[in-house]
Computed example of a mutant assay.
Amino acid sequence: MPTIEISRGPVEYTVLEGDSEAAPLVLLHEGLGCIAMWRRFPARLAAATGRRALVFSRHGHGGSGPAPQERTPRSLHEEAHEVLPELLDRLGFRRPVLVGHSEGASIALLHAAGHPVEAVVALAPHLFAEPRTLHGVAAAREAHASGPLAKELAFYHQDPLTVFRRWSGLWLSEAFRDWDIEGDLAGATAPVLLVQGDSDPYGTFAHLDAAERALGGPVQRLELAGCGHAPHLERPDDVVDAVQTFLSTASAPAGQPSRQEIRP
C-alpha cells in the first residue's frame, strides 16, 4: 500500500481509477476503521459511478503512521479542516464527492462547510453525542474486553489497542458529552445524501433531522429498514443505487425541492 507524507505523518492510501473529468470520490472511514475495513464497497461504488476514488486510513489507523496526539472533542474538526485539506492538495484531488461513514461522515460534513466539494454522502453520521451512541460505545468496550472485537481490530490495524482506547475513551469522556456540530454546518451548501438504518445501535434518525436543519444546501435522505450501523456493508446494493441516483441529480435545476426522500 503506498503512503504519502503530510505534516502529521505518513498516510496509507489507494486510488481506484476512473473518469478523470468527473469529481472524484473520497472515502472517509469510521472511528475504528481503515482502508481494508471498507471491504469491496469502494471498488463497487467507483465502478458503478465511473469515478476515481481515493481511500485512505487516518493517522493511527490501518497502516498509516501513529496519531501524534490524544483525541479531543476538536479532533474531528481538525481532521476536516487541517488533515483532509492537506491530503487532498498533496494528491491533487479537487472538489471531491466525499463519502463518509460514522465519524467519517461527520468529518465530511464539517469539511464541506468550509471547503469546496461537489457533494457529500453521509452514511450513519454523528452530529451530537446521542445517548444511544454512548450506550453503543459502552457495549463495544465490553465486547472488546471479552476478546472478539480486539481480535478483529488486530487484523486491520498496526496498533489496534490504541485505536480502540482513543476512540472509546473520547466518546465516553465527560468532555465529549456536549459535543455537537449542528451549528458548524451552515456553510455546507453542496448537495448531501444522508443514509441511516433504523436498527443502528450507534444512532437514530435524529442525526439526519439535525443535518437537515443545519445544512445550507439541498438534502436527500435514505432510511433503511432493518439496517444497522454499516449501510454500505449491510445493504450495499441499495446504497450504491442511491448514490448513483443522487449524483446524477445532485445538480438538479433550480426550483426543485431542496428536501427529498429516497426509498430503496
Results as ranks from 00 to 15, higher is better:
181 I>V: 15
82 E>D: 12
216 G>D: 05
8 R>K: 11
19 D>C: 03
201 P>G: 02
139 A>E: 15
83 V>L: 12
95 R>W: 02
228 G>S: 07
163 V>T: 06
146 S>M: 10
169 G>E: 02
49 T>Q: 08
230 A>W: 00
51 R>W: 04
125 P>V: 02
195 V>S: 10
183 G>A: 00
44 R>F: 01
74 R>S: 11
37 M>T: 12
117 V>Y: 06
206 A>E: 15
103 E>T: 08
150 A>K: 14
252 A>C: 01
198 D>N: 06
86 E>W: 10
243 V>G: 03
261 E>S: 13
186 A>I: 00
202 Y>H: 13
22 A>V: 04
80 A>N: 11
73 P>G: 08
3 T>M: 12
173 S>M: 03
244 Q>N: 09
1 M>H: 14
29 H>V: 03
198 D>G: 06
196 Q>A: 03
165 R>M: 04
112 A>D: 11
44 R>Q: 14
220 Q>N: 07
160 P>R: 00
33 G>P: 10
107 I>C: 11
46 A>Y: 13
89 D>Y: 00
18 G>K: 04
226 G>H: 03
27 L>I: 09
113 A>C: 14
95 R>E: 13
178 D>M: 06
109 L>Y: 09
94 R>V: 12
226 G>I: 09
261 E>F: 02
133 T>P: 00
249 T>A: 10
57 S>C: 10
86 E>S: 09
108 A>E: 01
187 G>E: 10
246 F>H: 14
136 G>L: 09
39 R>G: 06
8 R>M: 10
148 P>M: 05
177 R>G: 06
124 A>C: 06
227 C>N: 08
53 A>Q: 04
24 P>G: 00
48 A>R: 15
223 E>L: 14
140 A>M: 12
96 P>T: 11
220 Q>D: 15
49 T>E: 04
169 G>T: 08
91 L>R: 09
160 P>H: 02
115 H>N: 15
181 I>D: 09
181 I>F: 01
187 G>W: 03
202 Y>M: 09
130 E>H: 11
211 A>W: 14
124 A>G: 06
152 E>G: 04
143 A>Y: 02
243 V>D: 04
99 V>W: 03
215 L>D: 13
260 Q>S: 10
159 D>L: 01
120 V>I: 10
134 L>A: 09
82 E>Q: 08
245 T>I: 12
213 R>A: 02
19 D>Q: 04
251 S>C: 09
179 W>V: 14
177 R>L: 15
61 H>K: 07
175 A>K: 05
2 P>N: 10
